[in-house]
């Protein structure tokens, strides 16, 4: 079915759970008053990104009061939000929740934790171990967090699991100045979202944050990308934004008729070859 999504391109404060929670709740309330179906937030929206030793301090159990407030609001609008999750055995995950009708519809723990260049996630976070699509009242969806998108297999698995809408929560640092119109990171992401949408005949909802942490900028530019790879709506670069767009069921249906790559994708061939590779590598 058609539905309206709002991408809250916010500027979280580093380590300030209460203030960020207020910011998030007011964006959700705006979504409710404007009648959207889903409000999406960036990766680690509740905590900020370069947390380092703050990770255990801002980590929340899924039954925490901050999340209870969002769960309550999700009775009126669906919400996808990123936060630091603490498990019962004291592991910490870079997680995202899809909340709907007062319940946690899905939890995704970031699988690919970048630890290179300016990134240091594997030092602080435990790795997620699964990629699963889930049903919502609008479509079958998949959640990914930032670096997950850069591993071809992650969106592929979700699409094979039936997802037609992929939500990617991001805190992408802006870098790579050149003569180009945009930063290198912006150019790379725009290619990635569009190409992934085309490969998988799926919509991409990409929500990136803005602001600066210790001199590192987050470039924004959140996007709604149609299954044909064209951009339906794009948020401001560097500035806060609240981007609203309609996801058109007809566009998805037509694209899947024009380019039925997902229909023709061969799970048996892929599985056979991957099993062979796994066997050969373990020798």
């Amino acid at each position: 079915m058609d539905f309206t999504v709002a991408l809250a391109q916010i500027k979280p404060k580093l380590g300030c759970l209460a203030e960020n929670c207020e910011m998030i709740c007011s964006a959700v309330e705006r979504g409710i008053s404007e009648g959207v179906g889903l409000v999406v937030f960036p990766e680690l929206a509740l905590s900020g990104y370069f947390l380092r030793d703050l990770v255990p301090e801002v980590a929340l159990r899924v039954d925490s009061p901050h999340l209870a407030r969002l769960l309550d609001l999700s009775r009126h609008v669906d919400i996808a939000v990123g936060f630091v999750e603490a498990s019962a055995d004291y592991r910490f995950f870079n997680s995202a929740l899809y909340l709907s009708e007062g319940e946690i519809r899905h939890r995704h723990r970031k699988v690919y934790l970048p630890t290179y260049g300016l990134f240091d996630e594997q030092r602080y976070f435990a790795r997620g171990e699964s990629l699963r699509a889930f049903d919502t009242k609008f479509a079958r969806m998949g959640l990914l967090i930032c670096e997950d998108m850069w591993h071809l297999s992650a969106p592929y698995v979700l699409a094979m699991d039936g997802a037609t809408t992929l939500i990617c929560l991001s805190s992408s640092p802006g870098r790579g100045i050149s003569e180009d119109e945009s930063l290198g990171s912006t150019v790379a992401w725009q290619k990635l979202t569009s190409t992934t949408a085309m490969f998988l005949n799926s919509r991409i909802i990409y929500c990136n944050r803005v602001g600066y942490e210790d001199g590192v900028n987050f470039w924004g530019g959140s996007e709604i990308v149609s299954p044909s790879g064209s951009v339906v709506a794009r948020g401001k670069i560097f500035d806060e934004d609240y981007l609203v767009g309609v996801l058109d069921e007809g566009a998805l249906r037509r694209e899947r008729i024009f380019s039925p790559m997902m229909r023709d994708e061969s799970l048996p061939i892929t599985m056979n070859e991957l099993r062979r590779i796994e066997k050969e590598r373990s020798r």
Binding site: G174, I177, S178, E179, D180, S182, Y212, G215, N217
Partner: peptide, 22 residues
């Protein structure tokens, strides 16, 4: 790639940096 930069973009980035970090 090279040392030549988009100065309008760089200006926007550095002005934003000073404003926000101050």
């Amino acid at each position: 790639m090279g040392l030549k930069v988009n100065t309008k973009l760089l200006r926007q980035l550095l002005v934003g940096f000073i404003r926000e970090e101050v």
